[in-house]
Amino acid sequence: MTSPSNTAASNIADGCAAPDQSAPIPASVDLQKETVITGVVTNADGEAVGGAYVRLLDASGEFTAEVVTSPQGVFRFFAAPGSWTLRALSRHGNGDLTVDATRGVNEVGVSVSS
């Protein structure tokens, strides 16, 4: 007996929307190969900002990707080693941070203020 683990819905190719930002990194992701940039967006009072838009810009300032923070303020990108800029937009204001990412998990924090 095989269990019907593949539901019809899972046969449909995923779109390009971002997965749940606070979920654990899937086991299928090889952290020896991936460059993960992850962290929390906080406001001027140090509180996590959920629903913020975090944009990943490359070394030339060009847009690469964007995610929405989880209710805990968490975001995550799968990038490549090198220099990146994180730009957070929120109803509490905006903020930027430059990151020099290396292979594996790069943890950062981005604060926003108006």
């Binding site: 299928s28 090889d30 190969k33 991936e34 690469t64 990707a65 964007e66 799968f78 990038a79």
Partner: peptide
């Protein structure tokens, strides 16, 4: 250089 946008795993 990438197969998917940078907010998704690349495999």
């Amino acid at each position: 250089r990438l197969l998917a946008p940078a907010h998704l795993p690349q495999e």
